[in-house]
């Protein structure tokens, strides 16, 4: 049996984990499961694509960095895409979620996110059609790294980027004042107000961070696989499963669970067949709900 699936699983799991951070933060702080989170991911990927194309049109083609498939425009575009996705999330919150939040029925907000998800996704199909697109047509050579595993330069670079983002997020949540405030707010919103935390600021930070990371995950999928309007929808179940398996509100949990799910999916592809891959997240989700609904690092619901 080839061990390649371990690498594939790690890559796949990184993307799930990055997305799941946003899901878990939204759930812990805004208190609803956002069905539109996958679509933020897809919008981020397309926004970045638009920016890359824009830069190419203005500045001409740039040489790739080292052995990677992309050059500096991709990095600039990725940052721009993350900002744009953040703005999209803030706009959605302002138009829709904030208004419903004021009425205080959490499940209605879930339903609204469901409607928004459908509108966002189909809007992408309208704008870009449903056929897949790519950031780069370049074919990368995979290098053997031993044990029969082969890896492309892009994969290495993106694993490093994921690691950096996750570490950065962890430091942000544990060391920065805003991160502490976000954790405090998720534990007890009323007390958070008593100690002087501005809820509106926390809500904004949550959307910006969740959307930026969703965009990063979308870009990774775009670089390593392809960009499609449905890419976010396909990631939604694994992301939810990772957020729940990791324990709602736990960022290390979401990332670890993302890796677990990614690896399980890769193993399933190898052992059973690629067509059953999407069922893995569901099987894990059901197992968690029956055995340990609070997840790996979760705390019992108050």
């Amino acid at each position: 049996m080839s061990l390649q699936f371990i690498l594939d699983g790690l890559i796949n799991g990184s993307m799930i984990g990055l997305g799941a951070i946003g899901v878990t933060l939204t759930y812990a702080i805004l208190r609803f499961s956002n069905f539109a989170h996958g679509d933020l991911m897809a919008w981020g990927a397309y926004a970045t694509l638009a920016l890359v194309s824009g830069i190419a049109a203005l500045a001409g083609a740039a040489a790739p960095i080292g052995a990677l498939s992309f050059g500096w425009p991709m990095i600039v575009a990725a940052l721009g895409g993350m900002a744009l996705t953040g703005l999209l999330a803030l706009a959605l919150d302002w138009l829709l979620f904030a208004r419903l939040r004021d009425r205080g029925q959490a499940i209605i907000i879930v339903m609204a996110s469901f409607g928004a998800s459908m509108a966002l996704r189909s809007l992408l199909e309208f704008l870009f059609t449903s056929s897949p697109v790519y950031y780069s047509r370049a074919i990368q050579m995979a290098m053997p790294v031993g044990l029969g595993i082969r890896v492309t330069p892009d994969q290495i670079a993106l694993l490093v980027v994921t690691l950096a983002l996750v570490l950065g997020m962890h430091l942000f949540m544990t060391r920065s004042q805003t991160g502490r405030e976000m954790r405090a707010y998720s534990q007890n919103p009323a007390l958070a107000r008593v100690v002087g935390i501005d809820v509106a600021r926390i809500v904004r930070a949550t959307w910006l961070i969740g959307a930026a990371l969703a965009c990063a995950a979308g870009i990774m999928v775009g670089i390593l696989v392809q960009i499609r309007p449905l890419m976010g929808l396909d990631m939604l179940l694994p992301m939810f499963a990772a957020a729940i398996l990791g324990g709602i509100g736990s960022i290390p949990g979401a990332v670890l669970a993302g890796l677990i799910i990614g690896l399980s999916e890769a193993a399933t592809v190898q052992l059973i067949g690629a067509e059953w891959r999407a069922a893995v997240a569901f099987a894990i989700l059901m197992a968690v709900l029956f055995i340990r609904p609070m997840g790996l690092f979760g705390v019992a619901e108050r």
Binding site: A184, Q187, L191, V194
Partner: peptide, 11 residues
């Protein structure tokens, strides 16, 4: 200082 739940238990 509220009557109950007046600290953040997980901080």
């Amino acid at each position: 200082v509220p009557q109950t739940e007046n600290i953040f238990p997980l901080l």
